[in-house]
Design a protein around this nucleic acid. Sequence first.
DNA 1: AATGAATGAGCGTTCATTCAT
DNA 2: CATGAATGAACGCTCATTCAT
Lengths: 196, 196, 196, 196
Amino acid sequence: MGIDEQKSAKRRGMIQAATALFAKKGHHRTTVDEITKEAGVAKGTFYLYFRDKEELLKLVMQELLEKHKLAYEVLGATPCPKERLRQYIAWELKFIAENADFARLNLNALGAVDKSLIEWYSMIQREHMEFLEGVIEEGCAKGYFKEMDSTRAARFLRGVVFMFQAGRILKPQAQGDMEGDVDFIYSTFLGGVQAD
Amino acid sequence: MGIDEQKSAKRRGMIQAATALFAKKGHHRTTVDEITKEAGVAKGTFYLYFRDKEELLKLVMQELLEKHKLAYEVLGATPCPKERLRQYIAWELKFIAENADFARLNLNALGAVDKSLIEWYSMIQREHMEFLEGVIEEGCAKGYFKEMDSTRAARFLRGVVFMFQAGRILKPQAQGDMEGDVDFIYSTFLGGVQAD
Amino acid sequence: MGIDEQKSAKRRGMIQAATALFAKKGHHRTTVDEITKEAGVAKGTFYLYFRDKEELLKLVMQELLEKHKLAYEVLGATPCPKERLRQYIAWELKFIAENADFARLNLNALGAVDKSLIEWYSMIQREHMEFLEGVIEEGCAKGYFKEMDSTRAARFLRGVVFMFQAGRILKPQAQGDMEGDVDFIYSTFLGGVQAD
Amino acid sequence: MGIDEQKSAKRRGMIQAATALFAKKGHHRTTVDEITKEAGVAKGTFYLYFRDKEELLKLVMQELLEKHKLAYEVLGATPCPKERLRQYIAWELKFIAENADFARLNLNALGAVDKSLIEWYSMIQREHMEFLEGVIEEGCAKGYFKEMDSTRAARFLRGVVFMFQAGRILKPQAQGDMEGDVDFIYSTFLGGVQAD
DNA sequence: AATGAATGAGCGTTCATTCAT
DNA sequence: CATGAATGAACGCTCATTCAT
């Protein structure tokens, strides 16, 4: 293991410890001491890699954001807007199941008071909205969907998906049949928006 | 003014101060000092009426919950399930606009890590879900809606309404035409669930 | 003992403890913990009475400044400028002997890097200079002293007195015959400035 | 470049960096990190050349002391004590203007609480005093000056010069006419001490 | 010799909670 | 009941010093 990787290892260790702890306890309740102990380094080491706790929070959010963004590139490749919609729903539910940290932080951020968390939530939300508005407008243009306010429609669907995600985050044990959820959301939304 | 009312007055004052402060700054960032100062009583008085800050938080939530519950009694009186659905949507958007404290706390609670906030969110959520499941099942029984999983449908609609509420909470200045929102949600949802 | 005096007592205790400690160790090396322990109160108590350590430092300096100022009122009452000069010298040596804390802080402040200490030193210094310039100008006007730059003369005498003070502060044990010092300073300075 | 010179070069670099930094920020506020960064070496290198920060401080002072001493050898060569006095005054004001680092450290040391700084100040002070006492005693012996306590007279003049130096250090921008200062100090002091 | 990552004691400050009055 | 002064544990952060490479 080279020096770079070692250095990276401590950094990574702290970022991962923080990601988990922030998700579990919120970043307020998480102390620098806990993060470093969890990562197996001394307290002072924290400040070798991060200016302060705030910076680490931003890095954690940044990282989760990147992860989330990658998904959209895949989705964007699907030509049919209806199909893209379905994939969006499926992907979102799956992503949340596999990235509990992101999911929890996303919920935290929605109700946050801290500026950085609020901004972060806004960025994620905007990303969703832009994607969905794009799909819907294309669907309208192609005659699949009836004419409507694409912002409202995007928010509508985002809300549905969000709530199904929240259900899975808050009560992971009670959740089964993800495919069924996807079908239900997709077909019900389609029923509401499709051209007559 | 009797002793009881005096006592009650201080209690009330602190609960109200806390409600506003919790909504504005989150309950973490709100100090006992601020609450008592805002309520015009001494710091020590706090502990005559509440065991600790946690208990006050619970009381604040309890109170907001009661307020919210009252609404459902009115809605329950409407016989037609489709009409009840429409009223639910309209009421929820209106309620949030008029009860910013409740609204913010609701967002906080969704992402909370504190046990009491989580429980509170669950209670509110259950209330919504029970109401909506009831309406939907009745609508199915009466042949208005197609056969479907009423829990999923309830969650679906809850999500939509929630996201429109969140939009109004997070960007109050950017929100207009509530009636238009209600129409959109109602008709789109109906399009998705109505019997063929 | 009333509430006011009690409150005052803790405050006073901390100010006095701080005055002594700042003089002994410098305010950098003095910790809040030491101050409160010396004053016999808990650490948190400090912040009931002072916003932060900086504020306490300012208060300590303020207080010492007031004490020092009082002296000048007495000196101002003496009509003859030559006599006033002599009294200034005598007073300054005596004051330093009786107010070791002030003296040490004064020395600290001369070489300080901290803004508040520097400002404080400037204020004290300006006070000396204004007093001395006044005396000298009056002495010139009355024909006691030859015509000269009063600022230079004031600085000249201030330097002499300062150095005799510093000697007494830094090596208190080696100092005797204060009256002899006063005579020497007075007569030598007079010899240098008196009219031919 | 041999190993010795390399070693010496790093040492020198750190001593010089420290001299400047101590003067600018005080040695408390100066971190080892800053010193090594300024000197362009690694942090750990510091401890190869100095036991700790304290030792470096001593070395810095030592070096400044040597520099200062050199001046006195030149002054010593002047045979006439009155002339030597004048040269002392002129030299001191000039030295301070050209050695801001020494000057600031000198002020720091006067009010210091650290043992090593105090000792350093004492050494410098003793050097001044010995020089001045020598001059004065010679002047007395030669009949230029009246009989007097040479220690007192030395302290007297040292004080005057010190205060004019301090003025130049603390408010460099406000200082003009050094020659005028020298003349004033010299003639006024002479007026005070010369034989009748 | 030289590095710089790692350490951890120690600092100033906050705030929920207690308790003498 | 009511007060608010007092407490002290806990936090985020700094920096002189060590040590494996």
